[in-house]
Design a protein around this nucleic acid. Sequence first.
DNA 1: TCTATTATTCAAGAAACGTTGAACTATGTA
DNA 2: TACATAGTTCAACGTTTCTTGAATAATAGA
Lengths: 113, 113
Amino acid sequence: MKPLPHPPRDQIALPAVLDALSDETRLAIVARLAGEGELACGEFLALGSKTNLSYHMAKLREAGVVRTRQDGVFRYMTLRWEDLEARFPGLLQSLLAAIKRDTASARRKTARK
Amino acid sequence: MKPLPHPPRDQIALPAVLDALSDETRLAIVARLAGEGELACGEFLALGSKTNLSYHMAKLREAGVVRTRQDGVFRYMTLRWEDLEARFPGLLQSLLAAIKRDTASARRKTARK
DNA sequence: TCTATTATTCAAGAAACGTTGAACTATGTA
DNA sequence: TACATAGTTCAACGTTTCTTGAATAATAGA
């Protein structure tokens, strides 16, 4: 397929990263990637349609949050841990901790209903 | 003037906070508040028109990033450090460090031109 | 009361965002 | 070749965001 542009490490911009992460769907994607490592787009179909996921993946990729690797028909996504850590030390870790807390408390709320 | 609603600590949501911080203007406001403490809206006129700042301040306030206190004709903004720290430990600190780095490297670039 | 200052609200427009279905590309397999 | 699979691209749509100027509110001081 096509090249799939990724920004180099030094061009990863904070507002773009925060914008990419200011969406529930994309936060969920990032959380799963953090927990399970490399995953193909198809693994996320519970979060939206194929088309819609493609859109969100592109946002994450263009912001520099995620790297896409092609293998046959599949496209595997990984978190750009080292690049993000080099650029914004500690940020990803506190973000992931916050996501876990938030989704955990969200689960408690829905369970109570 | 009017009440100026602030979300209580436990209703500060991560996506809303990240969305509030995904804008250059608002990042600049937060960075100055972190460095200088309490500031009135008028202190930020270099970042935009009065009307426009009012909009950005409302975004920050409604996301729970900032608290507004009225004193006479002025409205003083402060970062909600403790609330944000309680909700998302470490997040604000790494964000502020990232902002400083980014604006510093941006200054180096513009200086070089 | 009149006036200046500080900031918000409102209406309007341009731009960006998120979602969709149809069409398309690229790969693997029979 | 032909077919199935995994994702992307495109055009369209409705919604939201950002920005602006005019009008408004609230406070302070003469």
